[in-house]
């Protein structure tokens, strides 16, 4: 009797809890393939364009050349012009094979001998058979006008197995013409090898600031817990603690106050590619050994919107989040033509 009761209840529960998933036919409008363009202009660096094409999501082809196989490099034309001048054809540069183990996919790289300068107006146009032509333009920003107004060290903790130092920084952005309004901020631990000058860099994981200019997402709960000891509970009460290692913000002329804790456990080895590049560019000016640095980057509005929209996709709570339309400033296609300028501060060595 008991067994029958349990079976009946279990069956009823199973029926009630039943859900099913099935493959369905896509009945929407199939979006045609478009050209995808990514490039970033930096003062003093050769200008490079990465080109590919979009693919319909149900396209069954899975090869790493999925996004370039329909572009004929012989008949594809990529041109760049500076400050309204005559367009210059960019040359296709064959690249290394993509790495399948890290989900890298291939794109087409186009290079030229053009070196952007701050203030340059750059326009890129691409035409390829079978695709609508695309065009994008950007203005190269100047280096940010900012200074470190104050830097202090507090809450030094030292155990046998762990040590940490809390840094408090006031960064003043002084941009009289409000030329740059969008910035990106990193704190970095840098090591320059005394023997060969090779630099390696890690991002400081938990920059903490209650400055309302930061719009962040609590995207890593584990990270919060790992760094929870760094919060002063009285300070955090009813405030909004923001944790980030790489943050976009909409700036202007004002002072930012932020702090972070530097310890063996607080650095982020996955610090972005751009930050590493910026450090390498400044390698000659870096002291040997370990340094603590702040990297402030001025970015164009298009760069800010693109990176913000990319930040909005995925994340730990993607299921409960709105879909994010990735920003594009490429007319007729997808992607982003971005530009930025770096300012590097070494805090201590």
């Amino acid at each position: 009797m008991k067994k029958l009761f349990i079976i009946t209840i279990t069956a009823a529960s199973a029926l009630l809890a039943l859900s099913c998933s099935k493959v369905i036919e896509f009945k929407g409008e199939q979006v045609e393939e478009k050209l995808v363009l990514f490039a970033e202009a930096k003062e003093g660096e050769p200008f490079t364009v990465n080109l590919s094409h979009s693919v319909f999501f149900l396209d069954a082809y899975n090869g790493l050349d999925k996004y370039i196989r329909h572009i004929n490099t012989d008949s594809c034309r990529v041109e760049v012009s500076f400050n309204g001048g005559k367009p210059v054809s960019m040359t296709y540069l064959p690249g290394e094979e993509p790495d399948p183990y890290f989900f890298h996919v291939g794109t087409l790289t186009y290079v030229c001998n053009c070196i952007p300068s701050a203030g340059d107006e750059i326009e890129v146009s691409v035409s390829a058979p079978g695709y609508d032509p695309v065009k994008a333009s950007v203005s190269v920003p100047r280096q940010p006008q900012a200074v470190i107004r104050s830097h202090s060290v507090t809450d030094t903790v030292s155990y046998d197995y762990y040590s940490s130092v809390k840094h408090n920084i006031t960064l003043e952005i002084n941009d009289p013409g409000q030329y740059s309004k969008y910035y990106r901020l990193n704190a970095l631990q840098v090591y320059k090898d005394p023997d060969d000058g090779e630099v390696s860099v890690s991002g400081i994981f938990s920059i903490y600031s209650s400055d309302p200019v930061f719009i962040s997402t609590l995207s890593d709960l584990d990270g919060i817990i790992d760094n929870i000891e760094n919060i002063d509970s009285a300070e955090s009460e009813r405030k909004v603690p923001d944790f980030f290692s790489d943050q976009l913000f909409f700036g202007g002329s004002y002072s930012l106050t932020f702090n972070f804790t530097r310890s063996e456990y607080s650095y982020d080895p996955t610090i972005g590619y751009e930050a590493r590049k910026a450090v390498r560019r400044a390698a000659a000016d870096l002291p040997y050994g370990e340094s603590l640095a702040i990297l402030l980057r001025a970015v164009t509005p298009g760069t800010y919107y693109y990176l913000s929209s990319r930040d909005n996709t995925g994340g730990d709570f993607a299921l409960f989040a709105e879909g994010s339309v990735i920003y594009s400033n490429v007319d007729g296609g997808y992607g982003a033509l971005c530009a930025g300028a770096d300012l590097f501060f070494v805090l201590e060595n």
């Binding site: 995808v36 979009s54 996955t270 590619y273 751009e274």
Partner: peptide, 11 residues
């Protein structure tokens, strides 16, 4: 409904 190749981590 589209897939594109974009830089890792948005950079």
């Amino acid at each position: 409904t589209s897939q594109i190749a974009s830089p890792m981590d948005g950079l």
